[in-house]
Design a binder for these strands. Sequence first.
DNA 1: CCTGCCATCGGGGGAACCCCTGACTCGTCC
DNA 2: GGACGAGTCAGGGGTTCCCCCGATGGCAGG
Lengths: 212, 212
Amino acid sequence: MKTVRVLIVDDHRLFRSGVRAELGPSIQVIGEAEDVESAVKAIAELEPDVVLLDVHMPGGGGQEVLRRVLGSGSQVRFLALSVSDAAEDVIGVIRGGARGYVTKTISGTELTDAITRVSEGDAVFSPRLAGFVLDAFASTEAPPIDPELDSLTQREREVLRLIARGYAYKEIAKELFISVKTVETHVSSVLRKLQLSNRHELSRWATARRLV
Amino acid sequence: MKTVRVLIVDDHRLFRSGVRAELGPSIQVIGEAEDVESAVKAIAELEPDVVLLDVHMPGGGGQEVLRRVLGSGSQVRFLALSVSDAAEDVIGVIRGGARGYVTKTISGTELTDAITRVSEGDAVFSPRLAGFVLDAFASTEAPPIDPELDSLTQREREVLRLIARGYAYKEIAKELFISVKTVETHVSSVLRKLQLSNRHELSRWATARRLV
DNA sequence: CCTGCCATCGGGGGAACCCCTGACTCGTCC
DNA sequence: GGACGAGTCAGGGGTTCCCCCGATGGCAGG
């Protein structure tokens, strides 16, 4: 079993050394950071396997770190570590891309275990926190009927469907046995009716409504 | 500590009595059901604290039970119990409103513990299964690392991410402080590496891997 | 019958996209 | 020092997309 390289991000020095002292031999702490700036910098330089991330920090907090690091295409895995068990915090960092969330009441051996699992791609949770995520998840599924979709004609819906699948105009024309120009006309009126500006937005609009 | 009243829903009689035998004294099995119809009926009559729900059953499976029971305003808590560890199954029942998902490889004591926690409002997961939920929920990154995604450079991944979001080249250029020509270069190499032919396919490729 | 609405087809123009080639800076590795 | 990859920029050429015009035929409603 190879050792897991970990970066600790927390604004309290005492806490950081506490974590260091408690972690098992399979975890190698390769660095620390105490604010958003230094965290982003350290992650880019050290490329840790797992980042232990405090949620509440000066300069935007853990979510800001997530946004900047994952936003730039990094594959680093984050384990959020916080005193808070508030739903907003938990959901916020999970949405931000963290692969786990444990509270600071956790024991050293449990934390070691959690880090190891996150490094292997698992998601780790204090069970009582997982409830928040599930609630938010189940409630994100509200498919309201679209009055806008109703305003489209049959033909326009067919074209929309193919657009959403990534077809080029030429391909759509062949598929529907009409000319490219007609396809353009339909697309134009769809864009106008839905108040969108290009086929990419249209694509996203359609997939968001699951009509692909 | 008060005992937890449990209903077992599974289409295999032998499995049901196995669960009965293995559960600890703090769990009281108040009934069993072997299909969707009898399960819905039993839940309405017995009002258990927790329903142990098999995912795959004749007559619509566990999801049908969830739909009918929770749809009618019941507050019963469900713990899904399945041989399957497929992402569709896990996500499906969680979306349906189950508060936990464990595989049938679980031990009796672990199951007892899981039932107790669910009855207290927690969510319980085999950690490796929680990953599926988080992927679908946070829609950030897939843990099975793509060999193809790996072949992309850091910069190419950033561009890919913005493409997938529907940004025009000009907007990407502004966002990353580089020229449009450079964006084109990156897009070209991404397309070549992933063997795709245009930005629409790229968009679909990215969303399929949940990196938007 | 005339007025919309829908579907079809075109021209022309400008922007965006895709490819190919070439070139320059950095680092890293040998 | 030289080779190499990553990142940056540019020119040219072809395709696709989007929008502005206009035009025809069909079909429903007042």
